[in-house]
Nucleic acid binder design. Structure first.
Length: 288
DNA sequence: CTTGTACCCTGACCGC
DNA sequence: TGCGGTCAGGGTACAA
């Protein structure tokens, strides 16, 4: 899926368009896009007629609060949790997108302003789920801190990493530890912090943890500024590409010279995913 | 608790 | 042109 910056990009574009819009009709093209215990019919019933509130994001999840139109000011009793996973995309318009671009219709939410929010997902790993607000609150508690919020300090990260023997890259990918970092930005943050991704998380010294905390925030902020990274399927709203792929320093650059020292970038597999790093700038031993 | 593996699904790409 | 293998911004279920 898109990682934190990509989901945040989509949220920012979607929020002003969806706020106060009523959902008039729901069409589900593939039943497996409705996640969770509700059937597609139950999903449609729970969502139809509801008014969407301010779109939010937690980790890589997009949240659409649903108000009862009769008392729209009350806290939203339920919400739609959207997981884009690897290939989820949105299109918002009065008419369907070009089928040549948007080849895999998934879920359509027709709105009361005449437009429809189209969700497309090639691999159908993502989808929508309707949840009671309390149920989401329980799930949410198991997620790690938001790296761009004030609580994500060096000390907080140090506490998360302390005593962990798993490689630092794996820990960064674990949503229970830090929420929203995925495979691209884990590699990028470790490159910026000059830390070998294979190091045991608990072996990082205080200076390294401080560098990593700043690197994570820095790379996520820069990626949001660039509307995300489009390396293959990710698109922002209505098919737009991000630009941060032009600023990647490690991810996807196997064999290319390191931007700092010209040593060829290496690729290894960790937790079943590719990790890219510079063997010279990111030494195996602890650095100051 | 932790870690690793299989799996969900389709499409793009590479070597033969 | 076809075929098989590998890989892809993710997460979950299950086994050890």
């Amino acid at each position: 899926m898109p990682e934190l910056p990509e989901v945040e990009t989509i949220r920012r574009e979607l929020a002003p368009e969806l706020a106060r819009r009523r959902i008039r009709a729901v069409r589900v093209h593939h039943d497996d896009l409705i996640l969770g215990p509700a059937s597609p019919a139950e999903f449609a019933r729970a969502v139809r007629g509801r008014v969407i509130g301010e779109a939010a994001r937690r980790a890589k999840v997009l949240l659409l609060p649903l108000h009862d139109p009769a008392r729209a000011e009350a806290p939203a009793p339920s919400l739609i949790r959207v997981q884009l996973r690897m290939t989820g995309r949105f299109w918002l318009a009065a008419s369907p997108p070009d089928p040549a671009e948007f080849r895999h219709p998934g879920i359509d939410l027709a709105l009361d302003d005449g437009r429809t929010l189209y969700y497309d997902d090639v691999r159908r790993l993502g989808g929508f789920e309707v949840l009671r607000a309390e149920t989401w609150a329980e799930i949410e508690r198991d997620l790690g801190p938001e790296p761009l919020e004030a609580g994500f300090t060096g000390a907080r990260l140090a506490g998360i990493l302390a005593g962990r023997r798993a490689p630092i890259k794996n820990v960064l990918l674990d949503q229970r530890r830090v929420a929203g970092v995925g495979n691209i930005y884990a590699s990028e943050a470790l490159f910026r912090a000059r830390i070998d991704p294979r190091r045991p998380a608990g072996s990082l010294g205080p200076t390294e943890v401080a560098r990593l905390q700043r690197a994570i925030r820095g790379v996520l902020r820069a990626a949001i500024r660039g509307s995300g990274t489009t390396v293959s399927s990710y698109r922002a709203m209505n098919g737009r590409s991000g630009t941060f792929q032009n600023e990647l320093r490690a991810y996807g650059r196997e064999g290319e010279p390191c931007v700092r020292c010209r040593t060829p970038v290496e690729r290894v597999v960790q937790a079943g995913r590719s990790t890219y790093f510079c063997p010279r700038c990111q030494p195996r031993s602890r650095s100051a």
